[in-house]
């Protein structure tokens, strides 16, 4: 564990807590893409198959459980909770995310560390996580004004993988046989997808204006 990775994990956790706060405090999921939330739930379920077989540390196990439970709870809440689901922007959340699923799985079959069930699902979760934010970014562009909590949610979600890139650079220089090309390249793509969001988020923060993504 290093400070970059810990900071990244805390930002990831913060993004989930901000999203839970928004949904439970405002009893609304307006501006949130259900498709992105479904993809994230799949990312965690596909990545943490080793939850009960490989024990890494208490921290690792607890965080995996938190991510799995929170992501499935958010999907369940947006689909089933009578009050929350009324505010879901169904007509705006139209990104065909099944393509992202199919493409990520196809790529995982071709590019993986070992052609085993667990490694293919791990690579699938890495590729899927890189593109999972797309339905959310498209929804933000369509829904014009972005409320503060939603903006903070996306910001922390983008920042977490940027810190993971610093973590991989650090590990590359400090550990002998460290090589995670699949995660590194995918993480770079993932963070790059947030570039324009980060730019408009910074502008709105600097000018103290409402965050607005150009359509």
């Amino acid at each position: 564990m290093n400070i970059f990775r810990f900071a990244g994990d805390m930002m990831h956790l913060t993004s989930i807590l901000v999203l839970l706060l928004k949904i439970y405090a405002t009893k609304s999921c307006s501006g949130i893409s259900l498709k992105t939330q479904e993809l994230y739930a799949l990312v965690f379920l596909a990545r943490y198959l080793d939850l009960f077989t490989d024990f890494i540390s208490v921290y690792n196990t607890i965080m995996k459980l938190v991510f799995i439970v929170s992501s499935t709870a958010i999907v369940w809440c947006m689909k089933r909770d009578r009050v929350v689901r009324r505010s879901y922007d169904k007509q705006l959340d139209t990104f065909r995310h099944y393509f992202l699923l199919a493409a990520s799985f196809a790529l995982a079959l071709l590019v993986n560390e070992k052609f085993t069930f667990q490694e293919i699902f791990w690579a699938f979760s890495i590729y899927l996580e890189a593109v999972a934010i797309l339905p959310q970014l498209v929804l933000l562009q369509r829904s014009g004004n972005v409320d503060n909590l939603t903006g903070q949610y996306v910001f922390f979600l983008g920042a977490y993988r940027a810190f993971y890139i610093l973590n991989w650079i650090y590990r590359y220089f400090t550990e002998t046989h460290f090589s995670r090309w699949i995660a590194c390249i995918s993480g770079l793509v993932q963070t790059a997808l947030y570039a324009d969001f980060f730019y408009y988020y910074y502008i709105s923060w600097k000018n103290n204006t409402k965050l607005k993504l150009p359509a």
Binding site: R5, D9, D50, N60, M63, E113, K114, E119
Partner: peptide, 10 residues
């Protein structure tokens, strides 16, 4: 080391 050991990240 097996690749699984490298899966120490979330």
């Amino acid at each position: 080391s097996s690749t699984n050991e490298l899966k120490d990240e979330l």
